[in-house]
Design a protein around this nucleic acid. Structure first.
Length: 284
DNA sequence: AATGTAGTCAACCGCAGGCAT
DNA sequence: CATGCCTGCGGTTGACTACAT
């Protein structure tokens, strides 16, 4: 803290430039990525003459230069998503960022720190969070009930099957499926949107835990996600009224929100693959 | 108008995991 | 199998800006 200015005051350390990037450096980096693509960051300095470490180049690209970055303030909708996903995933900023196209983990991290870390969250956020937790609780108890019913039903089916030729009835599957409770949901999900995708996911094991988490998240966000997903997944179907409410019911003005959510949940995103989309809708 | 304070953003650091050798 | 390198992630820091006093 004494002597020479710390941090960005230092212009060069061990031959590497540090501190704020100049537009010239940005240019070089952008040009490099355009020619060689992302990755191999350590070769950037060799190929471009840029006196920046690979790490620094990557960071600059990811957080600032990437063309698909969304500029501007975090919207209330994005804020809600951040809160919900943070409740689920904690400080896994990059994971959260994947659910917010155009936003970087750094941005989200900063946003969280400044808005929620020490201060009190906005009313909007508190409401969102409370609702999320409540619904999650309700869903869990519902699933438990469902499970019990299924177990009862399974018992009956098994009894019947003893007389018939099994036929691979779903309800007669192994205990490990039953104890997950979500097996039924998964199965139901596969039907409406993309059986192939869902089947593939199921076959691959497909991060089952994360899927469950996504069930929760999508469950909560259903008012928004369903409307969109019906548009996106069942393209043109348009009758997506799986929920009582619409995206705009609770989250502000309709058209604008629709657009926002459209971009938020665009299908390039990691989160809303077909299977997850189906999950969200079947839950409602 | 000047100063202090809080908020925001960009960038760095250290660590961990994955992959090639 | 061990080692080293590269990449990605989360935490932290410092500069800048906006707002309040």
């Amino acid at each position: 803290m004494e002597g020479a200015p710390l941090g960005w005051g230092r212009q060069e350390v061990d031959g590497w430039r540090k501190g704020p990037w100049t537009s010239q450096e940005d240019k070089l980096l952008v040009e490099h990525v355009r020619q060689h693509g992302e990755g191999r960051w350590n070769s950037v300095s060799k190929l471009t003459g840029l006196k920046r470490s690979g790490k620094s180049c990557r960071l600059r690209w990811v957080n600032y230069l990437r063309p698909d970055l969304k500029r501007g303030k975090i919207t209330p909708q994005e804020e809600s998503i951040i809160v919900q996903l943070h409740a689920l995933w904690g400080n896994r900023w990059s994971t959260i960022a994947r659910s917010l196209p155009g936003r970087t983990d750094n941005e989200i991290k900063n946003y969280w720190r400044t808005h929620f870390k020490k201060g009190k969250p906005s009313k909007n956020i508190e409401r969102a969070r409370a609702r999320f937790l409540k619904q999650r609780q309700e869903m869990q108890s519902q699933q438990q009930q469902q499970q019990q019913l299924l177990q009862l039903a399974a018992g009956q089916v098994v009894a019947k099957d003893e007389n018939q030729d099994g036929g691979g009835a779903r309800t007669g599957t192994t205990a490990d499926e039953d104890d997950r409770g979500s097996a039924v949901v998964d199965d139901a999900c596969a039907a409406p949107s993309s059986p192939a995708v869902a089947a593939e996911a199921a076959a691959a094991g497909h991060h089952h835990d994360e899927d469950l988490i996504m069930h929760d998240a999508m469950d909560f966000m259903c008012p928004m996600s369903c409307a969109l997903l019906h548009g996106a997944v069942h393209q043109g179907g348009g009758t997506g009224s799986c929920c009582g409410s619409t995206a705009s019911d609770e989250y502000g003005s309709g058209e604008e929100d629709g657009a926002t959510w459209g971009s938020l949940w665009n299908l390039d995103g990691v989160v809303v693959d077909d299977a997850a989309a189906a999950v969200a809708c079947t839950l409602w």
